[in-house]
Design a protein around this nucleic acid. Structure first.
Length: 736
DNA sequence: GAGCACTGC
């Protein structure tokens, strides 16, 4: 008779291995109160169900189990249920399953609740930002975003509420996933009873296995001595359930993949085979352009009799909600959808009915340069793993085709096997602050799944030190550092808010930082640029974009948060509602730490100064006018100088055309972010105009300058592998 | 001089 032991109940069984067969195992398990018979039948048909016993065995005997499961294997919905059935939720502990995206956590929890015949929020719940649908003491399975679990760790660092943590979609290697895995490895040393399951698509699995332990075992035959728990991780593969996708390449490379994609879509269309077409492009502009070109083609083709008609539509995150919903509707009879989408269609949403994928093999990727301290987006070739994921989107309903807009040789030679983990391409101040708050003192020695460049870590420590979150020994300060770590904000914005609370303008600044925490509030439907600009200028003030946001917020509130008002003012209503949610959450955080929510009643200078306290590291001064055109009407580009950057690290910096300060060109500005355009210019967005003396008013700023000057005398340290040298001024902060 | 991949707290 099979018995599956709970953590802390280790008793070596007389026969060693404590399982026999699936049937016995099932019989011993408590079933849900009202199982849905139809769903139970479907459950048993999932590929993962064949591995139920093996999974439970491995989890019982190994601290870490890695499950390689392809799309459609059922691991996300089934594994947590198996664990609960085997008793892992007894004794009040929960099984958690983390997801990189909110929607996934929500929909999977809903599905599993249905399968278990329970109400969502009872035995099965989910927890995402703004929504905790769980009942303490009742919920056994909790689906949550990895970000939420990381936040939870601030209050419960050893995750004592959980018996098993399953980290899903680990192959995506998102920032939060990587941090979580690093922390889980640490927690396991203190909590040998904690089980970690990592679910990943192929490629990354080996790396994950060796990270958790070098002596990885495969399958049950190589299992440990019965009755003991092995620290070696176990690796198990579960087949997926998708249709084959035939891949095609270009014979000749193309210089304009948007045009080529349009042509390819038309060719596919003219073959009159049924099925929708999905085109992967890099950004909003390309998707709109592609849609326009396809519309021209559709008009031309309409004259043909009897054939399917083309129905082109764009898909990207910034699209107004109504237009986005349209993409998910099945096309009217006689029409074929052609969706020109960004990366959003790679993982975040699924389009039913797609049989053809046309892949540009490019995407916009976040890159961080620790020498300039600038994070921006760059169009770059995707990885082969991404390309496979994209191709898979053609095989969801029936066998499909994928056309890659490059030659096979280029694909094999120039695309890397896997994407560089986000950890190695990001600015890390927020991550480092979070780790510090969790008591990870030595960031440089942290067991990273993929160690970021050391310059990036030093940069992050330097920024946190300048913001006053870390002291000279790189320890979290109280209360500033602690409060900043608790705020769900970028550390710079957190500092703005704390400063505002101290100077009596938190009511204003909480609005500004909430609006900076969402994507652009401007809803730019294509062909309406002028009207959008006019709308923007109605709210614009000379103090900059951040102060202008206050005007937008007030007008939106005065309209009663009207959707119609948003529409007429070219504002994305959905984005505003999200900013409002964030604003609420931040207000309750302030209340909890007894910081006042006070208004400065129109004293803009106080607001600007509070913003300067958090953004001073992103200061720029108007320097030269550059004439790079022969056009006599061209008046030149006003270039800004990055105040913080060392002389050798200057970049071509200017104000983004979308900023309200574009035509004002103030002497001194602070910016929240930069965008790198195709001609190499860094363009500052979300600006605030400042006086230079406000910058020196920031005590931390002076400290940073002093530290820099002192450190400049140090010998620069070589950094291995990258051929880069650590900036000398950075070593002053670093005592780890 | 003309525009902002995608997530997450």
């Amino acid at each position: 008779m099979a018995t599956f032991l709970r953590p802390g109940e280790r008793k070596p069984s007389a026969f060693g291995v404590s399982f026999d067969s699936d049937r016995d195992g099932e019989a011993a398990l408590p079933m849900p109160a009202v199982p849905n018979q139809g769903l139970q039948h479907q459950r048993q048909k999932l590929p993962v169900s064949k591995h139920r016993t093996e999974i439970l065995y491995l989890v019982e005997h190994h601290q870490t189990t890695i499950i390689v499961g392809e799309t459609g294997s059922g691991k996300t919905t089934q594994v947590p249920q198996y664990l609960v059935e085997a008793g892992w939720a007894q004794g009040g502990r929960m099984v958690a399953c983390t997801q990189p995206r909110r929607v996934a956590a929500m929909t999977v929890a809903t599905r599993v609740a249905e399968e278990m015949g329970t109400h969502l929020g009872q035995q099965v719940g989910y927890s995402i930002r703004f929504e905790d649908v769980c009942t303490p003491g009742v919920t056994h399975i909790k689906y949550c975003t990895d970000g939420v679990l990381l936040r939870d760790m601030l209050a419960d660092p050893l995750l004592s509420a959980y018996s098993v943590i399953m980290v899903d979609e680990a192959h995506e290697r998102s920032l939060a996933t990587d941090v979580l895995l690093g922390l889980l490895k640490k927690v396991q040393r203190r909590r040998p009873d904690l089980r970690v399951i990592i679910a990943s698509a192929t490629l990354e699995a080996e790396k994950l296995a060796s990270f958790f332990d070098a002596s990885t075992v495969r399958g049950r035959k190589a299992g440990p001595v019965p009755g003991t728990v092995s620290k070696a991780s176990a690796l198990l593969s579960v087949e997926g359930r998708t249709h084959p996708v035939q891949v095609h390449y270009l014979e000749q490379p193309t210089s304009d993949y948007v045009q080529t994609a349009v042509q390819a879509a038309v060719n596919l269309h003219e073959e009159d085979m049924p099925g929708d077409i999905l085109i992967f492009l890099t950004g909003q502009e390309e998707c709109d352009r592609c849609t326009n070109l396809l519309e021209e083609e559709a008009r031309r083709l309409r004259r043909r009799q009897g054939a399917l008609r083309l129905m082109p539509m764009p898909l990207y995150a910034g699209l107004p909600a109504a237009q986005q919903l349209q993409v998910f509707q099945p096309p009217p009879r006689g029409y074929r959808k052609v969706v020109a989408a960004t990366n959003i269609a790679e993982t975040s949403v699924t389009l039913e009915g797609v049989v053809y994928v046309i892949d540009s093999c490019f995407s916009k990727q976040k890159v961080y340069n620790p020498l300039t301290g600038l994070e921006s987006l760059l169009v770059a070739p995707i990885s082969r793993a991404n390309a496979q994921q994209r191709a898979g989107r053609a095989g969801r309903v029936r066998p499909g085709h994928c056309l890659r807009l490059c030659t096979e040789e280029t694909y094999e030679r120039e695309l890397r096997a896997a994407t560089v983990p986000e950890m190695q391409r990001s600015e890390l101040a927020g991550t480092v602050l979070q780790l510090k708050a969790l008591g990870i003192d030595n960031i440089m020695a942290f067991d990273w799944l993929a160690a970021p460049p050391s310059e990036t870590m030093v940069r992050a420590l330097e920024l946190l030190h300048a913001l006053g979150a870390l002291d000279g020994d790189a320890r979290l300060t109280k209360p500033v550092g602690q409060q900043m770590a608790e705020l769900p904000l970028d550390p710079r914005l957190g500092k703005c808010l704390l400063q505002a609370a101290a100077s009596g303008c938190s009511a204003e600044v909480v609005t500004i930082v909430a609006m900076l925490s969402v994507q652009s509030i401007w809803a730019g439907a294509h062909g309406e640029k002028k009207a959008l600009n006019a709308a923007k200028m109605r709210f614009a003030v000379g103090e900059g974009d951040l102060i202008s946001y206050l005007n937008v917020w007030k007008a939106w509130e005065d309209s009663g948060r009207s959707r119609k008002w948003s529409h007429t003012n070219f504002i994305n209503h959905r984005t505003m509602l999200r900013a409002a949610d964030i604003r609420n959450q931040l207000c309750s955080h302030l209340r909890r730490v007894s910081l006042p929510l006070a208004s400065c009643d129109g004293d803009v200078t106080t607001v600007q100064k509070a913003l300067a306290a958090g953004l001073f590291t992103n200061a720029a001064q108007l320097s030269d006018t550059i004439y790079e055109s022969l056009d006599p009407a061209y008046t030149g580009t006003n270039m800004y100088r990055l105040v913080r950057g060392a002389a050798g690290q200057q970049v071509k910096l200017r104000i983004h055309l979308g900023s309200v300060l574009w035509s004002c060109k103030p002497q001194w500005v602070l910016f929240y972010q930069v965008q790198q355009n195709s001609s190499g210019w860094y363009e500052m967005q979300d600006l605030v105009a400042v006086q230079p003396e406000w910058l020196t008013e920031c005590a931390a700023w002076e400290a940073a300058i002093a530290a820099a000057e002192a450190a400049a005398r140090c010998e620069a340290q070589p950094v291995t592998g990258l051929g880069l040298r650590l900036e000398p001024r950075l070593c002053a902060v670093q005592h780890l």
